[in-house]
Design a protein around this nucleic acid. Structure first.
Lengths: 290, 290
DNA sequence: CAAATAGTGTCTATTAGACAATATATA
DNA sequence: TATATATTGTCTAATAGACACTATTTG
């Protein structure tokens, strides 16, 4: 069989020989409510089994004639009404038993958007949707060491809260950092005997995306995707602090982002104190030297 | 339908309603030949259409009852004879037309190993296999700027060489960094009219993994996965320089990695000059403060 | 001893951390 | 004017960059 055409024709007949997995996207959409700065993410309430009534990440099955990126943009447009949202691929989860229905791979994405741009289309898909504030809490931390192995285990309680609807979704996770010789690995697993009210392995995906966000905020412009067109520096700093989970020094923070923003000249008066200037993102910053 | 058991039973009958993609792993296995330090990667010569006789990344279809990580370890054991190799997920490629046969998603992984540990099992799968040195060359660089958009395009020639077999595999790629407002993206595409002798979109995956390797080498211990059990600091520095593509200052390099290595007390005499000490990786370094 | 590479010391420039001082709004 | 937050200035410590110096081997 030396002719490519022939080969492909033959292949076509056999292509379903092996059982294939289904593929979905699961999207962690972060935004920041600007009134009282808080990191929030979008959850959808499930109307069907499995995990009926639990809260889950938005997303859905990839169509056979679209890429994962197209699937993500399609889903986001359906759920949030935003087109052309910032999204990056996180990880493809492939545990054999991650979905009780059948073999499903999940390509997870993180999407960031300013809150003012979006309108939740709740009930569009006969499902409830809402923004949940994110809180992580370290429950315990253990170390184990042998001659050629080192292990750090941390148990983390992830709590997602929507005050309007008065719901909380929770999950306990175990983050394990291992080092066998030079081989290091970092795994996140669900603590199965805990009361998990987040559907599937979505809590795992959410925690993973939080780590990614924290990490990238320090050396990329990623945080600006959470800001409105114009913003004040104290606001921007608050967003950084929220994501990093620690407070930063004013002077140093401003030095750091000085060349990433441009003053608009406008001011906002927000109380009995000096008004603060409005800035916008300096899109020329990206390539540094340009 | 309020009973979960019933629901799942029903689901089982319908689960093949939608057409599913096939899923493969494609693995970029890097190693360093220690004689004349050079970064090498493993390629397999294809015996069948499509891309017959072209060189391709090792990998294969994921079984329905294994995870992607298990598939990767299985493939690596088959191809290189190594078990328990360091591997990390890179990206899941999902272009609709990336494989002419049918819809195939590729979950790509990067694996690192010292060269002394492995034995190539060439011909195991009736295929030829070999280690290729990696070279990238910038062909041209362009900038474009409008009021709210900024774009940098670089054309890169990727050349993979195996001197023993006297073969070269080449591909031309276009790396595009875009910034629309706050939204930045970095995409790699194949230059289709160039003479590409690397199968499928594998050149893209290889370039992507090179970027990842370069990036992580600076702030993780990843490079030690390429080193043998014991190594000298000049050798280690050579590996860093090779990956980063630039020379480093001795004194500073040694300060940098001082707490990541442990002197063994042994020495190697390699010529008419002062012998250099052998070090091993300090596995306690990982968590910093421990 | 000359040549070659291993390994250390040190001066300078840059950046991070910490805190203080100044500026400008409202009640 | 008191209060509150915005914004800038500056001193000190730590780190990076650059280069020179010392050490130890073989021919």
């Amino acid at each position: 069989m030396d002719n490519e055409q022939q080969f492909l024709a033959q292949y076509q007949k056999e292509k379903d020989r092996y059982e294939k997995p289904s593929v979905t996207t699961d999207i962690v959409v972060f935004t920041v409510s600007q009134e009282r700065p808080a990191l929030e993410l979008l959850l959808i309430q499930r109307k069907h089994h499995p995990y009926k009534d639990c809260w889950a990440l938005p997303g859905g099955f990839m169509d056979i004639d679209e890429s994962l990126e197209q699937a993500v943009q399609r889903e986001l447009a359906e759920e949030t009404g935003i087109t052309n949202i910032y999204a990056e691929q996180l990880y493809t989860w492939s545990d054999v038993a991650r979905d009780p229905r059948m073999r499903i791979l999940s390509a997870s994405y993180m999407a960031l958007t300013p809150k003012d741009k979006l309108q939740l289309k709740a009930g569009d898909d006969a499902r409830d949707a809402g923004w949940f504030t994110v809180k992580t809490e370290s429950l315990l931390k253990e170390y184990k060491e042998t001659k050629e192995m080192l292990e750090e285990t941390e148990e983390i309680l992830l709590t997602l809260t929507n005050t309007q609807k008065d719901v909380q979704a929770k999950a306990t996770l175990r983050v394990r950092k291992q080092a066998y010789g030079t081989k290091t690995s970092e795994t996140i697993e669900m603590v199965e005997d805990a009361v998990n009210t987040i559907a599937f392995d979505h809590a795992k995906i959410i925690l993973y995306s939080l780590y990614r966000l924290r990490n990238k905020v320090e050396y990329t412009n990623i945080a600006f995707n959470l800001m409105p067109e114009k913003f004040t520096l104290p606001r921007l700093q608050a967003v950084y602090e929220m994501i990093l989970g620690k407070s930063l020094f004013k002077a140093q923070f401003r030095r750091h982002i000085a060349d990433k923003v441009i003053a608009t000249g406008e001011e906002v008066k927000e109380g009995a104190h000096r008004p603060s200037q409005l800035y916008r993102y300096n899109h020329r910053w990206v390539f540094g030297s340009l």
